[in-house]
Design a binder for these strands. Structure first.
Length: 905
RNA sequence: GGGAGCAUAGCUCAGCUGGUUCAGAGCAUCUGCCUUACAAGCAGAGGGUCACAGGUUCGAACCCUGUUGCUCCCACCA
């Protein structure tokens, strides 16, 4: 059978994914085993796979596959999030392309389009995950707007309302003028923005008064005191001037004391407003005067409340100036800003303008500049509800990995503010509040239930006149129930949830620590009296090589599916993990995927080698036949060594997994396979050729090698599920259900430290000899002769025959050297000579030895210095002193040997 | 403005309670090899004042202080 020289992943991947599915290997049903559960962070239903998903889901799949192999009942629940704002925006855009305006549609019509969209595009991202190899239990796929899920969200809302934790009120909220909805504090991104600070004159109402506005009155550099009948207010939002209802100064500000209680004229609209005093004013900022616009600024709103000021809302929900603004009505806020400046200039009311850089809130979804806006919304009181979620993380009941996020988390919870739950959108769970049109409202699940309640407040109320709240809930008010709802935890508290909850690990991005993780923990304690998961693994952000976040706009993100077709799913998975240290951002580069692909190919070729062996069905006894150069005795060392090495590495790998150092676990596996297994083990046991034919391999060696290979496939499987499954079936005849996906994770047997140590010595000798070949330009095919000249302890008896195998150099002489030219080298306390046919460059050799001598003398000196330091000998631990003493004697021996060599030259 | 974290080879990172081989890995680089598993490979080599400056200690990449540079989080300074 001819096996391709390179691994061809395309058909292999589809074949095995279908095979796993057909055999229900991803499916989990509760049983007597220990559960291992992951709920996927549900991607937006409109989403397409990006590199962040690739990383996140690769890690989840690695963990779930390993758990499955460890004999746990592994359950990975997939699904999607309805993502109200994002999806609604996409549907609106799609309708606009078709010439349909959202405003022309009824709610029902719009939702019909939205659901059509969801049915058509909603599954794309999940299909893409399958290409990556994600072993989710697809039969459990959930969507946050599924009927049952929808009910859970509504029921929780009603419950929280009944407990007095949800209230409705007119508050200052973050308003997204593009999406025309309120958004939560977490959805506001502050960005450094350059604006113009405009210094606007507000004339004092009483023409008699003169005010001095200059700092350092009369003594400043200008030397001139100007008297003015105005005060100057600094603002970056002159378009809000029409909403001004006062000018505030600090009560202690000497500059303005004479104005307390006076009126000033608001420009543009010529309204007289009082000068008030408030502690909240920063005397140092701007001119120390604040224009008070309660409708459009949080601070101003609070000042307004304290002083009983009116609220003039000059903005429409789409960000245009409202009727109440009186001027620039209907104009967009930014156009109005320009116009206001122009008008103020014309009126001579601008003192000066400055460039000003500050943080401005933008909508996470639409990137529109957020307007603080007063509006009627629903809020959830967070303080008491979040208390258990704080304790859980602080006590370590829920672990954050890496734990540097604990501080951030703590700070957020401790300072959490009430959560604005309502969104002025249609796509989402509609708020179950009902109004009778006369100022009464109730919260109830159905119209009928609402009617019953409303009748208590308003006997006249008629069922056909009551109206449900138009708003929907924030998306996160549904996804915070994800770990409970995906198991029908509300509807069937004694069902699957009992088995799977709390889930094991949550793998997600730190960006949504507050949005989602914190709130899931809150909901978990509120509704299950228990944490939703034990470990939260926070992945880094995928960036490009220049450290920029990958984004569509920058166009710096590779297309994941193209990467997969180029480098194979296994290659890309390995590539993602190679560059993702735990908890740090990763600078992604395609070359990592190339490395992953090359690694897959290496494994493939190791298989080709083993597959090409012919082997005797029975172990051969010694001396049987002439072609039995390869005997079990000869390979015993290699087998013993690798067996020990394998076990100690399994231990190491398990330890790394337990610390969630996935990238390092991969690297340890990589080196075990590439270096230990391929470069050393296989090189030692592979058969020699006689007459162009490889000698048969004895069955003991053959079977051992196959078993090692199988263990290696198991260790590789979480990282490279496809190639390992393919090889699992090629390497041995299997039953239909015998797959690596459900094979048992290899056990670390007791390993022989001694043989591992001996082998390290062996490797050093081999490297030295190969180095000499390289230096002297001697082909590996040319046999060389080696002498062991000096040794304190005997070499393991197997050295000579394995040296022949690996570097074509037998040790022929012990305790003596060769006549003629020899090249010496020292490994630990052993001195070797290689016999050379070529003449030796004495001068060069002397120079080399002198260098080595000098170096060792310096080293010895530093060790002696340490040992002659009394305080070191007294204070250091005895074993440390012992080590230093050993270093001293080794160095002395080495120096002596070098000197002897120099003498003999 | 407040807080957190980071700074180790050209790149990405390890380095766990200060003390094993005068600082490790992978990739990249350089040199020699198409050696019948693999050139997506083999063999070998080079490469670091552990950001900077002080301090503690017999001993510091590691602990302390300061400086510089980067990143992230939080925050209503108009």
């Amino acid at each position: 059978m001819e096996i391709s020289k390179t691994y061809n992943p395309a058909e292999v991947e589809d074949k095995w994914y279908a095979y796993w599915m057909a055999h229900d290997f991803f499916k989990s049903v509760p049983d007597e085993r220990e559960p291992y559960t992951i709920v996927i962070p549900p991607p937006n239903v409109t989403g397409v796979l990006h590199m962040g998903h690739m990383l996140n889901n690769t890690i989840q799949d690695v963990l779930i596959r390993r758990a499955r192999m460890l004999g746990k009942n592994a359950c990975w629940v997939p699904g999607t999030d309805h993502a109200s704002i994002a999806t609604e925006a996409k549907v609106v855009a799609m309708l606009r392309e078709r010439g349909i305006k959202k405003s022309d549609l009824s709610r029902e019509e719009f939702l019909k389009y939205a659901w059509e969209w969801k049915e058509k595009y909603g599954g794309i991202i999940l299909e893409q995950l399958k290409k990556l190899g994600a072993s989710c239990d697809w039969s459990r796929t959930r969507f946050t707007m599924d009927a049952g899920y929808y009910d859970d969200v509504i029921n929780v809302f009603i419950d929280l309302y009944n407990k007095g934790l949800i209230y409705r009120g007119k508050r200052m909220v973050n308003w997204d003028v593009v999406a025309r909805t309120a958004v939560s504090d977490e959805e506001v991104i502050f960005k450094d923005t350059r604006s113009r600070m405009v210094y606007v004159k507000y004339l004092v109402d009483n023409g008699q008064l003169t005010i001095d506005n200059e700092k350092g009155q009369g003594t400043g550099d200008k030397g001139i005191t100007q008297s003015k009948n105005y005060i100057v207010v600094a603002t970056v939002r002159p378009e809000t001037i029409m909403g001004d209802v006062a000018v505030a100064v600090h009560p202690d500000d000497e500059r303005y004391k004479h104005l307390h209680g006076k009126n000033v004229i608001v420009p543009l609209v010529n309204r007289a407003v009082p000068v008030i005093t408030d502690e909240a004013i920063d005397k140092e900022f701007g001119t120390g005067c604040l224009k008070v616009t309660p409708a459009h600024d949080t601070v101003d709103y609070e000042i307004g409340l304290r002083h009983g000021l009116p609220v003039i809302d000059t903005l429409n929900e789409d960000g245009t100036i409202s009727e109440a603004g009186k001027v620039f009505v209907g104009m967009d806020r930014f156009a109005a800003r320009k116009q206001a400046i122009k008008k103020l200039e014309e009126d001579g009311l601008i003192e000066k303008m400055e460039d000003y850089s500050h943080q401005v809130g933008h909508s996470e979804r639409t990137d529109a500049v957020i307007e603080p806006r007063l509006s009627m919304q629903w809020f959830l009181k967070m303080r008491d509800l979040s208390k258990p979620a704080l304790d859980a993380v602080v006590s370590g009941e829920v672990k954050l990995i890496p734990n540097k996020f604990i501080n951030t988390y703590k700070y957020w919870i401790e300072n959490v503010r009430d959560w604005c739950l309502s969104r002025q959108l249609w796509w989402g769970q509609q708020i179950p509040a009902w109004y009778d049109g006369e100022g009464n409202f109730v919260v109830a699940k159905t119209r009928e239930a609402a009617f019953e309640k409303l009748r208590m407040q308003n006997a006249e109320c008629r069922i056909e006149n009551i109206k449900q709240d138009e708003d929907v809930l924030d998306t996160w008010a549904s996804s915070w129930l994800w770990p409970i709802s995906v198991f029908d935890g509300f509807a069937k508290p004694d069902g699957d949830i009992k088995y799977y909850y709390p889930t094991s690990d949550l793998i997600t991005a730190p960006e949504i620590l507050f949005f989602w993780v914190a709130r899931m923990i809150i909901a978990g304690y509120a509704y299950k009296k228990e944490k939703p998961f034990t470990n939260v693994y926070l992945t880094g952000i995928v960036r490009d090589k220049q450290g920029r976040k990958m984004s569509k706009q920058l166009g710096n993100s590779p297309e994941p599916l193209e990467l997969i077709s180029k480098y194979s799913a296994d290659g890309v998975r390995v590539g993602m993990l190679l560059c993702s240290p735990a908890g740090n951002d990763l600078l992604f580069d395609e070359s990592y995927c190339e490395q992953g692909r090359n690694f897959a190919n290496k494994v493939w070729n190791a298989f080709r080698l083993v597959k090409g062996w012919t082997h005797h069905p029975q172990p051969l006894s010694k001396g049987e036949g002439s072609r039995t150069d390869v005997t079990p005795e000869k390979n015993q060392v290699a087998i013993d060594w690798f067996s020990s090495k394998l076990s100690s590495e399994i231990e190491n790998i398990n330890d790394l997994y337990s610390k969630y150092r996935i990238s390092e676990a991969l690297m340890a596996t990589y080196k075990l396979v590439w270096d230990d297994f391929c470069a050393w083990y296989l090189e030692m046991v592979k058969p020699d050729f006689v007459d162009g034919q490889p000698l048969p391999v004895d069955s003991y060696t053959y079977n051992s090698t196959i078993e090692f290979f199988e263990d290696i496939l198991k260790l590789l499987h979480p990282f490279m599920p496809f190639i390992t499954e393919e090889l699992w079936h090629l390497i041995r005849e299997r039953d239909e259900k015998d797959c690596v996906i459900n094979a048992e994770w290899p056990e670390a047997l007791p390993s022989d430290k001694n043989i591992i140590e001996q082998f390290e010595l062996f490797k050093e000798v081999v490297t030295n000899i190969r180095n000499i070949r390289q230096q002297k330009n001697i082909s590996p095919k040319t046999p060389m002769k080696l002498a062991l000249v000096k040794n304190k302890e005997p070499l393991p008896e197997w050295f000579p025959r394995l040296l022949v195998k690996l570097c074509n150099v037998p040790i022929l002489i012990f305790g003596n050297t060769y006549p003629g030219n020899v090249l010496p080298f020292i490994v630990r306390q052993y001195e070797f000579h290689v016999s050379l046919d070529t003449t030796l460059d004495i001068a060069a050799e002397k120079a080399r030895l002198m260098l080595e001598l000098e170096y060792n003398k310096g080293f010895l000196e530093s060790v002696q210095k340490k040992l002659s330091n009394e305080r070191f000998v007294q204070n250091a631990k005895p074993e440390v002193v012992e080590i230093e003493k050993k270093k001293q004697s080794d160095a002395e021996a080495k120096i002596k040997a070098i000197e002897e060599q120099l003498g003999s030259l």
